[in-house]
């Protein structure tokens, strides 16, 4: 736990040292949330959304959850490769690898700060949209947090693949691009998956965010329990069982390739 603490402390101290950037990021997030609030108000005026019925028909909640969840997609996809790239640029990667701490722990601890930061900013957004802007929610907090954590772990398989590839290519990997783009377009972040043509809906089923978003919206908007989102939980578990081992294999391959090439510290 102490190792996790020093990683979080490092992130916190660094963040505080860039105060202006921190404040501007937070302001940007508020502005983004406000945009979706007013957009939902504009679109929802006098309209019904049958496809949103499973989520209580709440367009604003639908959009806010879709947007904020995409930041967790970003955390899962980019934390590992971002940590490696950041350490390479700081010249610290070799020291981390030479330490007593196994590589997989280093990656998890590095991602921990990003995850906490995303949780913090998401919490702030929800506090504002619920208590200031008056958005209706009916949340099952325990179930929502479980789904969120499971989703992050599930998507981390793709993050590991991305990190393994970035260790070899140094910049640019097709995993992040493909997963990020497809998730944004097909997983139902901004509109229901049911609107997609059938062949794209098949692709959407293979994406963890599709299941995560359905389950999160139900647990946050209509207080669904885990039993009610059982099929999404099972889908996320199945995808985790598939992608996490592949991610570990690809990452190990990239790491050993960089070690053989002598290019661990290069970026």
């Amino acid at each position: 736990m102490y190792k996790a603490y020093v990683f979080v402390k490092r992130g916190f101290v660094s963040m505080l040292s860039y105060r202006m950037a921190f404040v501007l990021t937070l302001l940007g997030t508020f502005v983004g949330a406000a945009q979706f609030y007013f957009m939902a108000k504009f679109l929802g005026e006098g309209h019904e959304f049958p496809l949103l019925a499973p989520y209580g028909g709440n367009l604003m909640g639908y959009l806010i959850i879709g947007t904020t969840f995409m930041s967790f997609v970003g955390v899962s996809l980019n934390s590992f490769q971002g940590a490696i790239r950041g350490e390479q640029q700081m010249g610290t990667l070799e020291f981390l690898l030479m330490s007593d701490t196994p590589l997989h722990q280093i990656l998890i601890y590095s991602a921990l700060w990003n995850f906490l930061y995303a949780c913090l900013s998401t919490s702030v957004i929800f506090l504002v949209v619920v208590f200031v802007l008056g958005m209706d929610i009916n949340v099952n907090l325990g179930a929502a947090l479980f789904i969120l954590l499971l989703s992050v772990v599930c998507m981390s398989g793709f993050g590991l693949m991305s990190a393994g590839i970035i260790m070899v290519t140094k910049q640019g990997d097709p995993i992040t691009w493909a997963f990020g783009t497809l998730s944004g377009l097909l997983s139902g972040a901004m509109f229901p998956v049911e609107l997609l043509p059938p062949f794209l809906r098949t692709v959407a089923v293979a994406l963890p965010p599709t299941h995560a978003l359905i389950a999160l919206r139900k647990t946050i908007m209509v207080r669904a329990g885990l039993g009610e989102v059982r099929s999404q939980v099972l889908a996320l578990l199945a995808l985790t069982a598939l992608t996490l081992p592949i991610g570990l294999v690809v990452f190990r391959w990239g790491f050993n390739r960089a070690r053989t090439d002598g290019s661990l510290a290069e970026y």
Binding site: R10, V13, S14, M90, G91, T92, F95
Partner: peptide, 10 residues
């Protein structure tokens, strides 16, 4: 290490 960049600057 040989270089000066092996610590967290902040």
């Amino acid at each position: 290490p040989g270089g000066e960049r092996s610590f967290y600057f902040r």
